[in-house]
């Protein structure tokens, strides 16, 4: 499974970067969403994928036995998703503000005030 997901992650990164390079506000945020999710997928993939093996200790046993999914990357990815969600939502409000005040979605036309 891992090679397949590695390719998927690559495509997501590529698409994200391509979208970010367009001079358009909404494409910018779509690209950022893709990139941050690609990073999350990469954590899952590189930590190894296991199917149908939750890290639960079976009844009557003391430790985990057999193969089981590594719970740590899942915890990491959950945290990363939460953080990414918060930041991207805030970024969306910023973009909307920029759109409302400049009436343009083109990044180049957003007033040069800050450069």
């Amino acid at each position: 499974m891992e090679p397949f997901w590695a390719v998927v992650v690559g495509i997501m990164f590529g698409a994200g970067i391509y979208l970010m390079l367009r001079r358009n506000l909404s494409k910018l945020i779509l690209g950022l969403i893709l990139i941050s999710n690609a990073a999350n997928m990469l954590i899952m993939t590189s930590a190894g994928l296991t199917r149908d093996a939750p890290p639960m200790i079976a009844a009557g046993k003391e430790t985990l036995t057999g193969t089981y999914a590594d719970p740590l990357p899942q915890a990491l990815v959950l945290t990363a998703i939460v953080i990414g969600f918060g930041v991207l939502a805030y970024f969306l409000t910023l973009l909307q503000g920029a759109y409302k005040s400049n009436k343009s979605e083109n990044l180049d036309r957003l007033g040069g005030g800050a450069s």
């Binding site: 950022l32 990139i35 941050s36 690609a38 990073a39 954590i43 930041v87 007033g111 005030g113």
Partner: peptide, 23 residues
């Protein structure tokens, strides 16, 4: 407006850097 545009650049770049960090 100036602050808004500055923060868009700043946030976008930092998001990219966070994604690289995560990778």
């Amino acid at each position: 407006n100036a602050q808004l545009l500055a923060s868009i650049k700043y946030v976008a770049l930092n998001l990219v850097s966070s994604a690289i960090f995560l990778t």
